[in-house]
Amino acid sequence: MLKNMKTQTHLKPGQKGTKRLVAEYGQSLVCVRYRYDKVRRVRLKTIEIIVEEKAWPLAPEHGDGNIVALRVAYAEKALRAKLKAIGAKWDPVEKVWRVPISSVQGTELEARIQDE
């Protein structure tokens, strides 16, 4: 049904054509869209509303290009070899391995990321 429709107008709350809906839905109203169905030759007015709001704990921010620090014990030779293979660099001052976050996301190494 939606693939036959074209959205022609996208209105924010308070604009002309949304006042009655703002009165009905208040702060829950996000937007109003006018959709046109050429097959059925009808115009539809759709709305987007907020139905639930709850806290969302944010994960630590590490962008794909960010370098993170990993702590690996000296005795973990296999893990150190794996880090070298993915291009990690040893930081002798901090005594941590520096590696791009994208190289460790989704692996067992992700749990070893150190907060700086």
Score class of each variant (00 low, 15 high):
residue 10 H to Q: 15
residue 81 A to Y: 09
residue 45 K to Y: 05
residue 2 L to R: 15
residue 97 W to D: 00
residue 56 W to P: 01
residue 78 A to S: 08
residue 15 Q to R: 09
residue 39 V to F: 12
residue 58 L to Y: 06
residue 30 V to Q: 11
residue 63 G to Y: 07
residue 49 I to K: 11
residue 69 A to G: 05
residue 90 W to V: 00
residue 52 E to Q: 12
residue 106 G to S: 15
residue 48 E to C: 05
residue 46 T to L: 05
residue 85 A to N: 10
residue 82 K to M: 10
residue 39 V to C: 09
residue 7 T to H: 07
residue 1 M to Q: 12
residue 52 E to Y: 10
residue 95 K to E: 14
residue 4 N to P: 07
residue 1 M to G: 13
residue 100 P to I: 02
residue 81 A to H: 12
residue 64 D to W: 08
residue 108 E to W: 03
residue 44 L to V: 14
residue 19 K to P: 00
residue 49 I to D: 05
residue 41 R to E: 11
residue 13 P to D: 03
residue 109 L to M: 07
residue 65 G to P: 04
residue 88 A to Q: 00
residue 87 G to C: 07
residue 42 V to Q: 10
residue 38 K to T: 14
residue 9 T to V: 12
residue 90 W to A: 01
residue 60 P to V: 10
residue 86 I to M: 15
residue 33 R to I: 02
residue 1 M to V: 07
residue 16 K to G: 03
residue 48 E to M: 07
residue 61 E to M: 06
residue 94 E to C: 09
residue 73 A to W: 04
residue 81 A to Q: 15
residue 22 V to S: 08
residue 30 V to G: 08
residue 5 M to P: 03
residue 107 T to Q: 04
residue 88 A to F: 01
residue 90 W to L: 00
residue 24 E to K: 15
residue 58 L to R: 14
residue 102 S to W: 02
residue 50 I to L: 09
residue 65 G to D: 11
residue 103 S to C: 08
residue 60 P to C: 05
residue 57 P to C: 00
residue 8 Q to M: 12
residue 41 R to K: 11
residue 43 R to T: 09
residue 95 K to G: 02
residue 80 R to S: 02
residue 32 V to H: 02
residue 51 V to F: 04
residue 90 W to N: 07
residue 116 E to M: 13
residue 52 E to F: 12
residue 72 V to G: 01
residue 63 G to I: 04
residue 95 K to R: 13
residue 32 V to D: 01
residue 83 L to I: 02
residue 112 R to V: 02
residue 27 Q to L: 14
residue 6 K to V: 10
residue 53 E to P: 06
residue 97 W to F: 06
residue 62 H to F: 12
residue 101 I to S: 12
residue 104 V to D: 01
residue 12 K to I: 06
residue 96 V to A: 05
residue 66 N to P: 04
residue 73 A to Y: 06
residue 83 L to C: 03
residue 61 E to N: 08
residue 26 G to N: 06
residue 66 N to Q: 13
residue 105 Q to C: 04
residue 38 K to Q: 11
residue 41 R to Q: 15
residue 109 L to C: 01
residue 25 Y to P: 05
residue 35 R to T: 08
residue 10 H to I: 15
residue 25 Y to I: 05
residue 64 D to K: 09
residue 89 K to T: 12
residue 91 D to E: 09
residue 77 K to H: 11
residue 101 I to K: 06
residue 51 V to K: 08
